[in-house]
Amino acid sequence: MAKKKRIRVMLACGSGVCTSSLVIPMVEDILDDCGYSYDIVKGSIFEIKNHPNLDLVMTTMTNMPEDVLELGFPIVSYAPLFKGDSDTVQKNIKRALEDGEKGMIR
């Protein structure tokens, strides 16, 4: 697979402690499968605004507060991973990084 640009991914759950920590190995697998090289930062949804140059936000949440949406990052929910459904997440990541979609990608 062609070498792609290094991307910055933020994993955000409510507190930045629990779900986003548990999900790291699964997210790494997916990003590796897609052939990305990446840096992962973690935090709560309130901290997303403190990271100005993200390529992708991945979150537990299925909705996002408006002030987070206003930041204009593409947001993909990783909740399906817990069901073992990595295809949906992979598809959404591609829509975000390759088709340039912004906001909550469903």
Partner: peptide
């Protein structure tokens, strides 16, 4: 656990953080 239950339909229970993005 999921491998031991092929084809079995069940719900996957997640953290409440899933919900808190709602306004």
């Amino acid at each position: 656990v999921t491998k031991k239950m092929p084809g079995k339909e069940f719900y996957v229970g997640l953290d409440v953080a899933v919900c808190v993005g709602a306004s």
